[in-house]
Simulated assay, not measured.
Amino acid sequence: MNVVRNEFAKLRRLHIGLIAALMIAAIFGLTFVGAMSTAVESDSTAVSWALPLASLSLAFPIVSPLLIAVIASRTIEMEHQGNGWLLNRTTGIETGLLIRAKLVSSGFVVALSTVAASIAAVILGALLSIAEPFPAGLWFGYTAAVVTTNLVVLAVHLVVSVRVDNQLVAMGLGILGTVVAICASGFPSLLAHLTPWGYYSLASAADYQGEHVVTLTPSYVSILALGVVGAAVFSLATARFDRQEILA
C-alpha cells in the first residue's frame, strides 16, 4: 500500500493530472465538433443519442493511445534517469512490484479520465435536447469497454517503457497505436483482435453509415477476453522483472 501511495505522489510531481485534463478536453472537443457538425446538417428531430456516442467512439481512438503513451513514458522515465530501480531494490521493493504499483496509480488516472470524458459527452447529448430516452446500459457498457482497452494499452506501454530505456521508442509505439486505432474500424474483425489498439473499434457503440448514425453492440466478449489476457500477460511480465537483475 505504501508503494502505491508513493506512486500517486510521484504522479503529482510529474504533473500527470495536466495530461489527464488534456485527454478529457481533447476527447470532449472532438466529440463536440463531430456531434454539433452532424446535428447542424441533420434534421433536429432526427438527432439521437447515437450521435454523441458515435463522435465519442471516434474521439477515444484518436486521443487515448498517444496520451496514454505519454503518461506511461513519464512514469517510467523518472526511474531510468534517477536509477530508481536500484533505490527501490535496496528498500525491498522488487522491480515487478514497482511496475504493478505504477499500473494501479496511473491506471486510476486513466480510468478516471475515461469516465470523465464519457460523462462530458452525456452532458453534451443533454444540451442537444435529444427526445429519446437515454441508453444508460449501452453507454455504461461502452465506457467500461473503453476503460478496459485503455488500461491494457497502458499496461503494454509500461512494460515497453521499462524494457526500452529510449522513450522515443515508446512514443513511436504510441503514434503507431493511434494509427492502428483510427484505422481498425476498416479492418476485418480478426485483424482488429490482433493488437490492443484494434479493440477501440470493437468497443464502438455507434458509427456513421452513410448519412445516418446507428448504434452498435460493443464486442463485450472480446473486450473481456482482452482484459483477462492483458492482466495475465502483465502479471507474468512483471513477475519476470522480479527475478531479473536490477535494471540499469
Rank of each mutant, 00 (worst) to 15 (best):
N6P: 14
L11Q: 10
R13D: 15
L14G: 13
I16R: 04
A21S: 10
L22P: 10
M23I: 09
I27R: 07
F28N: 14
G29N: 10
L30I: 15
L30R: 12
V33M: 15
M36L: 12
T38Y: 12
D43E: 11
V47K: 08
V47E: 00
W49N: 09
L53M: 07
S57D: 14
S57F: 11
A59T: 09
F60R: 12
P61T: 09
V63I: 05
P65T: 07
A69G: 10
I71K: 00
M78C: 14
M78R: 15
E79D: 13
E79K: 00
H80T: 13
H80Q: 13
G82K: 13
G84P: 13
G84D: 11
N88H: 13
N88T: 11
T90F: 06
G92Q: 01
G96K: 05
L98I: 05
A101L: 00
A101I: 00
V104P: 01
G107A: 03
F108N: 06
A111G: 00
A111D: 03
L112M: 05
S113N: 01
A116W: 01
A116R: 03
I119Y: 09
I119Q: 11
I123N: 13
L127I: 07
L127G: 10
S129M: 02
S129D: 10
I130S: 04
W139F: 15
F140L: 15
T143W: 04
T143Y: 05
A144M: 04
V146S: 08
V147N: 07
L151K: 04
L151H: 02
A155K: 00
V156Y: 02
V159W: 05
V160G: 02
V162G: 04
D165S: 08
Q167I: 06
M171K: 08
L173P: 02
G177V: 01
G177A: 01
G177S: 06
T178G: 08
V179W: 08
V180L: 09
I182W: 02
C183H: 11
G186A: 11
G186Q: 09
F187P: 07
L194M: 04
G198H: 05
G198W: 06
Y199S: 10
Y199C: 09
A205G: 15
D207M: 12
Q209S: 12
T215Q: 06
Y220C: 10
V221H: 12
I223R: 03
L226T: 08
G227W: 01
V229L: 08
V233D: 02
S235M: 03
A239W: 03
R243I: 09
R243M: 13
E245F: 14
I246Y: 13
